[in-house]
């Protein structure tokens, strides 16, 4: 049975290749043989689905979801946008998960030993389900830049990690969002793994002053596109496509 709504072949030119020597860790962790191309079966067009009731009421509020003695330090920031598929349709009811460093550039992680302090009121992760049109929003503090051991003086621009599911496991995607105007963006070894400048630019979220809350929070807009689905007119059905 050819699955209905199989996904459009991934355009690998939009993505970083596996081997990117300037990002040194990729050298030993990159497959060297070609991927075997697999036409979609049920195993690829299906994937885990999540319900709003599985999440807690503060899961999308990083300012409050780990607040212990007060609120976290940092620039109060709203990030919002829409999850779309390659056909331009909103992706409803899909899980969006985010994680980030605190305002000083330190992650709440036992392996992070950067000297910037842990914020006792900031966990650094959140999650939400898109609405019926694919929109999502969360509130956080803007993460700081931080150094990492790639070159001696390598720094990551401020960024937020995103994890997305879509409706099928073949749409699974992890990426990072950057903030418009960050001077570290053009020299980042991680963003630089993406060969196409236009593709890199799509990870840079513009300031969205209209979505800011006056006297409260700035806002950035980040739309995400997952793979679209293929109309298999002659393989599946002849009409009603």
């Amino acid at each position: 049975m050819v699955p209905q709504n199989e996904f459009i072949q991934r355009d690998r030119a939009q993505h970083p290749p596996a081997l990117t020597p300037d990002y040194k860790t990729s050298v030993l962790r990159s497959p060297r043989l070609p991927l075997w191309s697999l036409q979609n079966s049920l195993s690829e067009v299906t994937g885990p689905l999540f319900r709003l009731k599985e999440l807690g009421p503060l899961d999308h509020d990083l300012i409050l979801n780990y607040a212990k003695t007060g609120e976290p330090i940092g620039e109060r920031t709203i990030v919002h946008g829409r999850v779309l598929d390659g056909n331009g349709r909103g992706v409803p009811n899909t899980l969006v998960e985010v994680w980030q460093a605190n305002a000083g550039g330190r992650y709440r992680h036992q392996n992070d030993t950067y000297l910037a302090p842990i914020d006792p009121n900031f966990g650094g992760c959140g999650r939400m389900i898109t609405d019926q049109e694919g929109y999502y929003a969360f509130r956080t503090v803007k993460p700081g830049a931080y150094p990492f051991r790639n070159h001696v003086n390598s720094w990551r621009p401020a960024h937020i990690h995103f994890s997305l599911f879509g409706s099928g496991f073949a749409q699974r995607l992890i990426t990072q969002m950057y903030f418009e105007g960050d001077p570290l963006i053009p020299i980042d070894s991680i963003l630089g793994t993406i060969p196409d400048p236009a593709a890199r630019q799509r990870l840079v979220a513009p300031l969205d002053l209209n979505a800011a809350i006056p006297i409260d929070s700035l806002a950035y807009r980040f739309d995400i596109v997952l793979r679209g689905t293929r109309s298999t007119v002659f393989e599946n059905k002849l009409q009603g496509n």
Binding site: Q14, S26, G86, G124, H161, I174, V225
Partner: peptide, 26 residues
């Protein structure tokens, strides 16, 4: 009029924070 897929980026060393926070240590 197809939209190009959002590019992937590495999950990084601290992927646990967002996706398996109990392994990150909290």
């Amino acid at each position: 009029d197809y939209l190009p897929e959002t590019p992937s980026q590495t999950a990084g060393p601290y992927v646990h924070i967002g996706l398996i926070p109990q392994q990150a240590g909290f």
